[in-house]
Amino acid sequence: MTAQQTPAGSRLGRRNDPDRRDRIIDACLDVIARAGVAGTSHRKVAAEAGVPLGAMTYYFDGIDELLREAFTRFAVTVSDRFERRMADAKDAEAARAAVIAIILEDVFGDDRELILSHELYTLAAREAAFRSITSAWMLRSRTALERHFDPETARLLDALIEGLTIHRALDAEARDPHEVERAVTRITTV
Rank of each mutant, 00 (worst) to 15 (best):
T2H: 08
Q4M: 14
Q4T: 15
Q5A: 14
Q5D: 12
P7M: 03
P7E: 03
A8M: 09
A8I: 13
G9D: 04
S10G: 13
R11V: 15
R11A: 07
R11F: 14
L12I: 11
L12K: 03
R14D: 13
R14T: 10
R15K: 14
R15A: 15
P18L: 07
P18M: 06
D19R: 13
R20L: 09
C28D: 11
C28G: 03
L29C: 07
V31S: 04
V31D: 11
I32C: 01
R34V: 15
V37N: 04
T40L: 02
T40Y: 05
S41D: 05
R43H: 14
R43L: 11
K44Y: 13
A46M: 03
A47V: 03
A47R: 06
A49C: 04
A49V: 03
V51I: 03
L53D: 10
L53V: 10
T57G: 07
Y59I: 04
D61K: 15
G62A: 08
D64M: 09
E65A: 10
L66K: 00
L66F: 05
L67M: 07
E69A: 15
E69H: 09
A70W: 04
A70N: 10
F71G: 00
F74D: 00
A75S: 14
T77P: 02
V78D: 10
S79E: 12
D80K: 07
R81G: 12
F82I: 08
R84H: 13
R85V: 09
M86P: 01
A87V: 04
K90D: 12
D91C: 02
D91Y: 05
E93D: 15
A95H: 01
A95Q: 01
R96Y: 06
A98I: 04
I100C: 12
I102R: 03
I103M: 11
L104C: 07
D106Y: 08
D106A: 10
V107T: 11
F108V: 04
G109W: 10
G109V: 12
D111T: 14
D111C: 04
D111N: 09
E113P: 01
E113Q: 08
L116I: 08
L116D: 00
H118F: 09
L120W: 00
L120N: 00
L123M: 05
E127S: 12
A129Q: 14
A129Y: 09
F130H: 02
S132I: 14
T134V: 15
W137E: 05
W137R: 13
M138D: 14
L139A: 12
S141T: 13
T143K: 11
L145D: 06
R147Y: 03
H148L: 02
D150Q: 12
D150I: 08
P151M: 05
P151V: 07
E152Q: 15
E152Y: 05
T153S: 01
R155V: 10
L156K: 11
A159S: 12
A159D: 06
A159Q: 13
I161E: 00
L164D: 00
A169Q: 07
A169G: 04
D171R: 10
D171Q: 11
A172H: 12
E173Y: 05
A174Q: 14
R175T: 14
D176H: 07
D176V: 05
P177D: 00
P177Q: 08
E179R: 04
V180S: 07
V180I: 08
V180M: 01
E181H: 12
A183N: 00
R186K: 08
R186A: 08
R186P: 00
I187D: 00
T189V: 04
